[in-house]
Design a protein around this nucleic acid. Structure first.
Ligand SMILES: [Zn+2]
Ligand SMILES: [Zn+2]
Ligand SMILES: [Zn+2]
Ligand SMILES: [Zn+2]
Lengths: 147, 147
DNA sequence: CACGTATTTGGGATTGAGTCTCGTTCTGTG
DNA sequence: CACAGAACGAGACTCAATCCCAAATACGTG
């Protein structure tokens, strides 16, 4: 192949972090690899448990450090689903992202994306005249299964 | 006056809770009165401190109980501004509400409302075909003062 | 008003996500 | 392979939030 493949999220993360002057380490690699495989957001505790279950336990401090680093660099997003319950998920390098509906009944997280919503936030930030770096949107209701 | 005045938020809260079979108690009254006077969201700790400063200290457990009750009945909203940092504010019975921008620099909360955003969320919920009871929107960026 | 019952309240113990510290281990470079 | 800086992890610690339960309070009834 002569053309450049679009980089995967992991590759993108590694290149961004390398460019920012970060070395590589086992803990970070593990967390990134795990996040790369997820369809939707995980909590820090779930990440800790998943890694331990895979036989490569990672210190709690490292997990939070990695997550903070990723969020700082716009590589992952924190989804606050409740008091003391943050979840994290990869952000696609293309800028494509989705938001979530959390079901009041079963607590399940449902992902969606909506250009109209993004456009509205865009217009809004222009109207406010402030620099909006990020937007959190979380809908609460009941999902199809709990309807 | 022969016409009915629009009820204040406190009155509305009391009638909703009475209808739901709740008795009145001092702690609840104090928290409701305090929230009614706020222009924007307070944390539970701020509420506790404010009430103590006013000479009517209220137990922590009661404060959280009242807040939960209000949120449950759609009378107040929880704004998750960060991990382990919830803020609460009254929801106007008319349905009028605002959202917030939280400043990365100074941490200040700036309120705004935007019909375009509300319309977009409306359309979205119709498109998804689910019943959306509530929507959280939180922008992150820098406020005018920190620009 | 006095009584009885259900609700509300609050002090204090407890939980648990998230943070901090600091000595150890690893990475990359020359 | 030596060195400096970066990354790691065990465990102490913080603090919002929850839980427990005995005491206080609200309110319908007589
Ligand atoms: Zn997701
Ligand atoms: Zn968006
Ligand atoms: Zn507000
Ligand atoms: Zn809205």
């Amino acid at each position: 192949m002569s053309h450049t493949e679009a980089p995967t999220w992991s590759e993108h993360v590694h290149s961004v972090l390398a460019r920012a002057g970060h070395q590589r380490g086992g803990a970070r690699e593990r967390v990134i690899e795990l996040l790369a495989r997820q369809p939707c957001a995980l909590s820090a505790v779930e990440i800790e448990d998943a890694l331990r279950a895979e036989g490569t336990p990672i210190g709690r401090a490292s997990i939070y450090r990695v997550l903070e680093l990723l969020v700082e660099h716009g590589l992952a997003e924190r989804v606050a689903v409740g008091p003391g319950q943050s979840r994290f998920e990869a952000i696609d390098p293309s800028g494509a992202h989705h938001h979530h509906l959390i079901c009041r009944e079963c607590g399940r997280l449902v992902a969606f994306d909506d250009p109209g919503l993004e456009r509205a936030i865009d217009n809004l930030s222009r109207r406010l005249g402030v620099r909006v770096e990020h937007h959190d949107v979380l809908l609460r209701g009941s999902c199809e299964k709990c309807e």
